[in-house]
Design a protein around this nucleic acid. Structure first.
Lengths: 330, 330
DNA sequence: TATAAAATGCAAATAATTTGCATAACTAAA
DNA sequence: TTTAGTTATGCAAATTATTTGCATTTTATA
């Protein structure tokens, strides 16, 4: 049922005529009441274009809910989703809730103007996720943020596999000492990368002899080098949980006249643009954002078309990752 | 005047009853007519929430019209505009028209759902800009793309000043030989950066002894080095039109055992994240995207509130840039 | 080509919005 | 505090928009 003046009248307590006059600007507006009515109209989705038409015939409006950060990854993400949604005949709009004052309200509003959400909110806590699920019951949502227990159907990269691939690459080349520069473990994907690496090393009968707790920053990589340098460990395979830390590590190593990969072999994670530019070129784990976008949007469309049962419990789909062999290991 | 079934009926040739039935899903939909009607409804903005209410009392909906590319710069741009629009009590949504089949149609549609546009379409030709201006007559639009002759009120970085600052930095440090790695000159800002650099060099009584035509890519920077290396020029101040080329140049120089800044001093442009990470740390021109966003949105809001006369000819505002002195010159 | 199912348009019925008018609330000046 | 002028509000009537019953046409399928 679509929202009319009567609904806004009920919600605000003003008569239908007043609501009408405010909304057609026939009243200059005691700013009090006018603002109140306008706000309600907007929030309730007065006149919003979301017809009860079969989605089969329609261009779907999809919202990518994210938190904008000034990182290359976000540009990749938006670019991929843009391309894919075009191919699927959807219109994609991007909304940041990074500075949102009330996530519930913002999402409710967006839900009225879109057919479904792709959500990338990696820093959101499970409580808030559940709140969203309650508020937007049965609304089509796909999450692409790594999480332990998914609240919504989730598509995310196989971080465990990424760690395992790195370990395998070192083992195959005959390394016998292994180190890791971890990401912040409260981030689920950082824990997975570490576990994948560690389990594979240990299954092969080795162990991790050096473990540095980083925070994904370039500086953490530099500090990691100084830590390992002090301990005079050498000829070791180092798995960095992201490329920034890997680059920071190598940077500091080069400043200290060390050789890469002779003294320290390094594998990073993310395959950022600079990883192939950096000297030496970085061996790293590549994530195929296009594939992620493709699968996430496919699934969301099926949800919108009610081809997926929204009442079953949420499941998680892992997108495989790949090792790109370059010049910092071997 | 708001759009009703009658208007859609007129536009499509179907009776009001048919339109009504299609739009309320009472007809399964001969896909032909149904699709036609639904499309028209969407395009004409049936039921779209854009009330003729005084913008004073309202949250403004602003669209950032862009072309998504996987470059760090876009992440910066979105992040800045997101933050600023929040402070100004606006809702910002981001729309890519990179793969748009009909720019006119897409923009017309967006215009019905937003109060104004921030446009960043640096690759668009003047003809298309003029087309947009015609189609969306009197609709509030601010452009932030560099252009020679602005069609819309434009806020853009002072690229000429950037080139001039680089030249001055070299001259002050006593350099007497100067080179430039140009961006593609069909890009207006690349021409400006070059002109600013050249004019300043020539006004000081010197001349540019080496000029390489690049395309903003890392590889162009590498090739630029090989070109200058063959010609055995040394002790020269090289201004690269962007950081990627600067980094490419330095990268190739280091591979060939040259010293930076001793053999070649380099100044880049953009201050990308990696410019301070790269070894040696890159001297570069910094652009304050937050300031750009702030001024562009301020102006757009004034346009929406009709505090700016939309009929006067478009003007261009230049946002100053700044030289960040690091380790690749001196 | 026959036949059933779906789509369409007209006009009537219903629903939503706007407006005239009377009254209430507020504002500014005496 | 009073008062005149302005603006806001609600009721009910008027207008406008949308939906629906019914007869007819078109389309799809055997």
């Amino acid at each position: 049922m679509s929202i009319g003046l009567k609904d806004i009248s009920n919600a605000t307590g003003y008569s239908v005529s007043t609501v009408s006059r405010v909304l057609s600007n026939k009243i200059s507006g005691n700013s009090q009441s006018a603002a109140q009515i306008i706000k309600a109209a907007r929030e309730m989705g007065y006149n919003s274009y979301r017809i009860s038409v079969n989605p089969e015939n329609r261009v779907l409006d999809i919202a990518l809910i994210t938190q904008h950060f000034s990182e290359e990854f976000y540009a990749y993400l938006y670019s991929s989703f843009d391309q894919v949604s075009l191919n699927k005949n959807c219109t994609l709009t991007i909304h940041s809730v990074r500075h949102s004052k009330s996530l519930q309200d913002d999402l409710s509003f967006l839900a009225k103007n879109h057919d479904g959400f792709i959500m990338f909110l990696p820093t959101l806590d499970p409580y808030s996720y559940n709140k969203i699920k309650e508020t937007l019951e049965n609304y089509p949502i796909v999450s692409i943020a790594p999480s332990f227990e998914p609240i919504f159907d989730t598509f995310t990269f196989d971080s465990y596999q990424g760690g395992a691939l790195s370990a395998k690459a070192f083992i195959e080349k005959g390394y016998e000492k292994f180190g890791i520069i971890r990401g912040p473990l409260e981030k689920w994907e950082a824990a997975l990368r570490r576990n994948g690496f560690r389990d594979t090393i240990e299954n092969a009968g080795y162990k991790i002899s050096w473990d540095y707790k980083g925070d994904y920053s370039f500086e953490a990589g530099e500090n990691a080098f100084h830590s390992i340098f002090k301990r005079k460990i050498k000829n070791i395979g180092v798995f960095a949980s992201n490329d920034q830390m890997a680059v920071g590590f190598i940077h500091a190593a080069l400043e200290n006249k060390k050789e890469i990969p002779t003294d320290y072999a390094v594998i990073g994670y993310d395959n950022i643009l600079f990883s192939k530019i950096f000297f030496p070129k970085l061996t790293t784990i590549d994530t195929d954002v296009d594939q992620l976008a493709e699968e996430a949007i496919d699934h969301l469309i099926r949800m919108i078309k009610k081809e997926v049962n929204l009442n079953r419990s949420a499941r998680k789909t892992l997108i495989p990752v790949e090792l790109i062999k370059r010049d910092t290991h071997k």
